[in-house]
């Protein structure tokens, strides 16, 4: 097993700093950490979205590695061009990396992402998932979970927020038979960092789906971003897993879930949920875990 990246061994160099992200922003942490792992050879493509909005305001440009904003739908297609172009002009030791939000990935960008995976372009695509279009004011995306209140799925007497479950993008990506895909969370940075490191060494398309809460959109205090990310894993509404060589592997299998109600009701976006709604979410979680435990391999040492 190769040497693990830890808080002690990660570089002190910063590649994304001086930006205007909100206090407690999970997305900016995910991007910062990803670039620290990838280093100066990273050529990042970010679509129109939170991170480009906070980091690319001329003349205030916040990436010290090569970085470019793509069209909203065009993260993966521009990544393809960047990778091919870099190779064509003879650049060596680079990694083309996409850093896109949930809407830019699962909704408007899914066609281009699917195309890039289909071509098996040598790129790393990281989706930082804050579960809604946060940059534009908290509108529902395809990755907004059931029950969440957003500005386009208000909670009222009749409808209690978003009525559809979160799209399962990790498995949609895996279904392309991608060389490597993983889920991650900023609640477990060591796991996230090492998945980036692993993905960056694999030839072909790789994908990491990292949950990165948005305090504004989730309705949590700005100092609880990491804590809520951990609660989300502990209560079973997120899981750390990998897809490699055609196999799913669960990295962490909680023996017992922590309280889903506690996770939900500590966030403003779920405050309106009634017990019946929470039961629906718990049932969805349990059904998912039944399938996972039945079909996926597990990493025993991390139990």
């Amino acid at each position: 097993m190769s040497k693990q990246i830890t808080a002690k061994t990660i570089t002190d160099s910063e590649f994304f700093y001086g930006h205007k992200a909100c206090a407690g922003c999970g997305g900016s942490l995910a991007v910062r950490i990803a670039l620290k792992v990838l280093g100066e050879g990273a050529i990042s493509v970010l679509p129109a979205g939170c991170m480009s909005a906070v980091g690319f305001n001329y003349p205030h440009l916040c990436f010290s590695n090569n970085s470019i904003i793509s069209t909203f739908a065009g993260t993966a297609s521009m990544l393809t061009g960047v990778e091919a172009g870099a190779r064509a002009v003879g650049i060596k030791n680079f990694k083309a990396v996409g850093l896109a939000g949930d809407g830019g990935t699962a909704d408007i960008g899914i066609q281009a992402l699917s195309g890039a995976i289909d071509r098996n372009d040598d790129i790393l695509y990281i989706c930082y998932d804050n579960e809604a279009y946060m940059n534009t004011g908290i509108q529902k995306s395809g990755l907004t979970p059931f029950g969440a209140k957003t500005t386009t799925t208000p909670s009222g007497e009749n409808i209690h927020g978003n009525i559809r479950p979160k799209k399962n993008l990790f498995e949609i990506v895996a279904a392309h038979n991608i060389p490597y895909a993983a889920t991650a969370s900023i609640g477990d940075l060591k796991d996230f960092m090492n998945k980036i490191e692993k993905a960056s060494k694999i030839k072909g398309t790789t994908y990491i789906h990292v949950v990165a809460p948005c305090p504004i959109g989730w309705g949590i205090p700005v100092n609880e971003t990491i804590e809520i990310s951990r609660k989300m894993i502990d209560c079973g509404l997120w899981y750390l897993a990998e897809y490699e060589n055609g196999q799913f592997k669960l990295n962490r299998t909680p023996r017992k879930f922590s309280s889903i109600k506690d996770y939900l009701l500590s966030q403003g976006r779920f405050k309106h949920l009634e017990d019946a709604d929470i039961k629906i979410l718990a049932a969805q979680r349990d059904a998912k875990w039944t399938t996972i435990r039945k079909n996926w391999n597990t990493t025993e040492e991390e139990l």
Partner: peptide, 16 residues
């Protein structure tokens, strides 16, 4: 996989 991607890809390559 689309014309949008055709030009987006060309932009990425040109940017290199």
């Amino acid at each position: 996989e689309s014309e949008h991607s055709a030009l987006s890809c060309a932009i990425g390559a040109s940017a290199m």
